[in-house]
């Protein structure tokens, strides 16, 4: 993991000179070991920034809130917002730029490299600790995790504790940034979609039961949607509960919201909801895993999005979040796109 002393210096300077409105970063969490999002407005608070393998959150989601806030203000402060991003998060910024949701001048990107590592999977950690409480998680010079508990330190190999998405990460360093802390070192990656194999190898019937079992637990709390930086629509197409009504919303517009599915948490409706979400994230999901982390029922949502990421790569050679100038996955085609499924 990178050292962030240079980042802190820059952050202080930016705040002191008023070049950014505020900085979104990571700070110490309230529950002990896990970092938490931190909003810094004063240079003297910069030292509260932390960077360790517990910085799991994708802070880019806060840019969505920032944009909404700005839209409501009469005379919004147009200065950029400073934001700490990991490799995956930076690709979320690229997608938001690609979709013109934000402008490059809206953000000052403080990139931090995971340097061959990544973030911890809290479920894996809990299992390892078997009831003990973690105080801190660090990475040592040999790229091993060092977990400090009440009873002392435990060392673990990277693979034992890394989140699955980090094990399948294509770029463990930011692809877009104004300042980069750390080196652009990649961890070796032989199976970028290895985690899907288990589901893919099932029969259609077994896949169906697998997903039924998983998605039947969904209570449609929409935490997945709220945590996702790509779910920035004011109103989701699957529900009409919060139509963005403004002074010029016509009755026609209100009437024209389509009830594609019911809001009840039934098997069919849950499945269709997650299908719609998956297809709308095709070519946009950067695998930050926030949906899955936010899910109170621990539904493995990442496997839905990862599947389409894989298909986009294999069918169309499309990789998400590397170039803001590229058209979106579904806004372009190649003459040689496969059509063996078409009669």
């Amino acid at each position: 993991m990178a050292k962030i002393e240079d980042l802190k210096e820059e952050a202080k300077k930016l705040l002191r000179e008023g070049k950014v409105k505020y900085i979104i970063g990571y700070g110490a969490g309230s529950n002990g070991w896990l970092a938490a999002p931190l909003f810094i407005k004063k240079p003297e608070d910069v030292d509260k920034l932390v960077w360790d393998p517990t910085c799991v959150h994708n802070l880019v989601r806060f840019l969505v809130d920032e944009k909404r806030r700005k839209a409501r203000q009469k005379q919004p402060d147009k200065r950029p917002v400073g934001i700490m991003v990991k490799g995956c998060d930076s690709r979320a910024v690229v997608v938001l730029l690609q979709e013109k949701f934000i402008d490059r001048s809206d953000v000052y990107i403080l990139g931090v490299s995971c340097e061959k590592m990544g973030v911890v999977d809290d479920a894996k950690l809990a299992k390892k600790l078997a009831g003990k409480k973690a105080k801190r998680v660090e990475v040592d010079a040999q790229d091993r995790f060092v977990v400090t508990t009440e009873d002392g330190k435990i060392e673990m190999a990277a693979e034992e504790l890394l989140a699955e998405r980090c094990l399948e990460c294509k770029a463990n360093f930011p692809v877009i940034y104004d300042l980069l802390s750390g080196e652009k070192t990649k961890r070796p990656l032989d199976k970028p979609f290895g985690s899907l194999e288990k589901i893919e190898s099932l029969s259609a019937a077994d896949r169906s039961s697998f997903w039924k079992e998983q998605l039947d637990r969904c209570i449609r709390c929409y935490a997945c949607r709220s945590a996702c930086p790509m779910c920035y629509c004011d109103e989701c197409v699957v529900d009409s509960i919060n139509l963005a009504v403004t002074a010029d919303t016509t009755a026609d517009e209100k009437a024209q919201r389509i009830h594609w599915i019911q809001r009840s948490a039934e098997s069919s409706e849950n499945l269709v909801y997650h299908l719609v979400r998956a297809i709308h994230l095709a070519g946009r999901c950067i695998d930050c895993g926030e949906c899955e982390r936010a899910c109170p029922l621990d539904i493995p949502l990442r496997f839905l999005n990862k599947k389409l990421e894989k298909e986009a790569k294999e069918l169309f050679g499309y990789e998400v979040g590397f170039d803001p100038a590229l058209p979106a996955l579904i806004s372009c085609f190649r003459d040689e796109d496969p059509q063996d499924f078409i009669r």
């Binding site: 963005a244 024209q256 058209p327």
Partner: peptide
């Protein structure tokens, strides 16, 4: 339906007639 449009430009890119602009 302008309330719902976020200006992502995906439709602009697919229009075969260049009929859409941001």
């Amino acid at each position: 339906i302008s309330n719902l449009c976020t200006g992502c430009g995906m439709c602009v890119a697919v229009c075969p007639y260049d009929a859409l602009t941001l």
